[in-house]
Design a protein around this nucleic acid. Structure first.
Length: 687
DNA sequence: ACCTTGTGAATTTTT
DNA sequence: TTCACAAGGT
């Protein structure tokens, strides 16, 4: 069964939509192009780019003007570049890159804005001193006491910082004696720490202001590397770039004119993800263009129901950018009609998709209710039923990375990395980014080392792997091939069941063969010269545990990490490199992670809660079809959007397994998915 | 009875 | 970092 045959009528409708887009481009009438999942949005956007290039390219070239194509991610940038091919006229970039390029050359004005920002921050902190309950002990001090206290703490800053992570008792002991004149000051150590941090912060900000004033600091910098502003270091992060961009565009008509003259066309991909500040900028440019008679075209391409990140503008677009013409496309080119029908019921808005194909039935979709413990067998059941193999894998979606990791088979590894100092506490956020990223460059230091190790290990294990693939980078090409063969032969003999054993076996091979050229390979993997097992272990430990606190705890955590089985590491290796080579029959994703992708066979595992919301999905079903307002509506829509994104990934076969109490949501589930199945009906436990 | 402290787990994703 | 909860203090 295949999706095929597009009627002349449908072809014509599609063509008409394109014509309408082109007409508005000609008129420089800004538009929102709304269409559901699988409608071919990116294709449409690229066709619009081509149209502009063909019709206006020469003219733009002569005036040294460009078309700005803005996307949300670098991956999308590359995709569009690849599909569009080379063009000097179109400038494809991320939002942040583009906005920063507009403002970064006007440093004098930026520093001014930055100064205001710092002053606001100072006011905010001062207000907190007065109003926050956590600053009570500070509030009851008089001016004199406050300045005395500040002086003491600034003098003893080092002691404060060093003692910061200690427990309350020990921390109190380490604080200077001079503080004894303030009784009860450390009655609550956390409050005390909080106030002192605020004092330090205030001092740094004020110092920064002085240095700006003194002409010492003249430049604001943006780096995509950091996720947080460091105002006092003149360093801003993602959100603030957009914020400053908006302020600049609002404040300086000249800048608006410069941008307009440079970019008469803006095409924005996945508009629902762009932040409101960006839309405000576009609106200002659009309106100013009309005012001065240099009209521009702004095209927003996206789907508000696929807005699954909170900072995206989503459905608010038309309230922020005025006078946009709404163009819709109701076709779906991805899925079988059975899937499309259900997806329409989930979104339940003016987009009501139909397949563009004449032959479009033959898909299957069903909602099951079951227990948490059924998940594995449920997946296996469909793996068999749908004749899953490596070329036709089964894709399973879970809400959290932890579940994805568990089912992908490397939970022990994940948990043992989580226990390390480098990935716990305040650095917890780094865990998923640095351990689960599909981009090698984004992996953390140790995960990257382990990746190189596993790359070698797996390459060696599979005898047919070509030599070239075992080698990771150019440096490795210098290795003498016959020496390499020897090493490989040796390594293939050695084996181990855990990470620790593998490392030991590599290094015993390595030291036996000292003097031979092939240890270069090992040097490259571990990025060390003539390393030994103990040295590598020490290196890993020092990278994962900065402080030399509690030896026993570190020892235990290292033991836990080194006891990770090779099987787990292999599973992890395949997980992070999956996008490159599909070698698994069952592939697991988070709902979020599947955005923009499509799969033949999909299983969605769902429970009633997600994140902080204990009844996230349950709530969606309970409120389905009801009139809602404010928070209820917001929560409802965010659950709906996530569910919509997940469901619309499926091309042909989709099952949803709900592993919580079905009773409260039964009615709505039936309305959307039809009859509910139970896992008992499948006889999962029989075999 | 109320407050403080310690502990452990946590939603996703990008720039 | 932020939250919830249990354990410990006053």
């Amino acid at each position: 069964m295949k999706l095929e045959g597009i009627s002349e009528e449908n072809k014509q409708i599609e063509k008409d939509i394109m014509e309408e887009l082109f007409r508005n481009i000609d008129l420089k009438q800004s538009i929102i192009f709304n269409s559901g999942a699988g409608a071919g949005k990116t294709y449409t956007l690229i066709e619009c780019l081509r149209y502009i290039i063909n019709k206006y390219g020469r003219d733009l070239n002569e005036h040294n003007q460009h078309v700005a194509c803005i996307t949300y991610t670098n991956v999308a940038v590359n995709q569009i570049k690849e599909k569009l091919g080379n063009s000097d006229i179109v400038r494809i970039s991320t939002i942040h890159e583009r906005i920063w390029s507009f403002i970064n050359q006007y440093q004098k004005q930026l520093v001014e804005i930055h100064t205001v920002r710092i002053k606001n921050e100072i006011t905010k902190i001062q207000k907190e001193f007065i109003t926050s309950e956590r600053c009570y002990f500070y509030q009851v001090m008089n001016e004199d006491e406050r300045s005395k206290f500040k002086k003491i703490m600034i003098r003893y800053r080092n002691d404060f910082v060093q003692a910061y992570t200690l427990g309350a008792k020990e921390f109190k002991k380490r604080m200077p004696k001079e503080l004894d004149i303030f009784p009860d000051i450390m009655k609550n150590v956390n409050n005390f720490k909080n106030v002192v941090n605020m004092i330090y912060r205030l001092e740094r900000l004020e110092d920064c202001l002085q240095r700006i004033h003194g002409g010492e600091l003249k430049k604001v910098e943006y780096s995509a590397m950091y996720n947080q502003d460091r105002l006092e270091k003149m360093r801003i992060s993602h959100d603030t770039v957009l914020e400053y961009g908006l302020i600049m565009v609002e404040k300086y008509p000249v800048l608006r004119q410069i941008i307009i003259d440079q970019f008469p066309y803006f095409l924005i991909d996945e508009y629902q993800d762009t932040s409101e500040d960006v839309v405000k900028i576009m609106n200002l440019l659009d309106e100013y263009g009309k005012e001065i008679g240099h009209t521009i075209f702004v095209g927003y391409y996206g789907d508000m129901v696929q807005n699954i990140y909170s900072d995206g503008v989503g459905k608010n677009l038309k309230y922020i950018h005025h006078n946009l013409l709404d163009i819709k496309k109701q076709f779906n080119r991805r899925s079988f009609q059975e899937i499309i029908t259900v997806a329409n019921r989930i979104r339940k808005d003016e987009i009501d998709q139909v397949s563009i194909y004449d032959k479009c039935t033959g898909g299957t979709i069903k909602f099951y209710s079951g227990a948490q413990t059924d998940v594995n067998q449920f997946i296996d059941y469909y793996a068999q039923k749908w004749n899953i193999d490596k070329t036709h894998p089964l894709h399973c979606f879970f809400t959290t990375n932890k579940l994805v990791v568990e089912y992908s088979g490397f939970l022990h590894f994940y948990e043992s990395i989580k226990k390390t100092e480098a990935y716990s506490g305040a650095r917890y956020e780094q865990l998923n980014t640095e351990l689960l990223s599909n981009e090698l460059m984004k992996l953390g230091e140790i995960p990257r080392l382990l990746y190189r190790l596993m790359h070698l290990y797996i390459g060696l294990k599979q005898e047919q792997t070509p030599m070239r693939e075992i080698l990771l980078n150019e440096e490795m090409y210098n290795i003498n091939i016959s020496n390499l063969r020897e090493l490989i032969a040796l390594l293939r003999e050695r084996n181990g069941k855990t990470l620790g054993e593998i490392l030991q076996s590599i290094f015993s091979t390595y030291s036996e063969q000292c003097g031979s050229q092939f240890y270069q390979l090992v040097d490259i993997i571990f990025d060390m010269k003539n390393a030994t097992y103990l040295e590598v272990k020490k290196y890993i430990q020092e990278s994962l545990f900065r402080t030399e606190s509690d030896d026993e705890k570190i020892e235990e955590a290292m033991e836990c990490l080194f006891s990770t089985s090779i099987e787990e590491l292999e599973n992890w290796y395949y997980y992070v490199s999956l996008k490159k080579d599909d070698k698994k029959e069952k592939i697991y994703h988070t709902y979020h992670g599947t955005k923009g992708l499509e799969y033949e066979n999909v299983i969605i595992v769902m429970d009633k809660g997600f994140g902080r919301e204990k009844n996230y999905f349950e709530n969606f079903f309970k409120l389905y079809g009801k009139k809602l307002q404010d928070e209820d509506l917001q929560l409802y829509e965010s659950a709906r959007n996530l569910l919509y994104v997940a469901v619309t990934r499926a091309i042909k076969n989709l099952r949803i397994l709900y592993v919580d109490d079905i009773q409260p949501i039964e009615e709505s589930v039936k309305k959307i998915f039809g009859e509910i199945g139970t896992t008992e009906q499948l006889n999962l436990h029989k075999k």
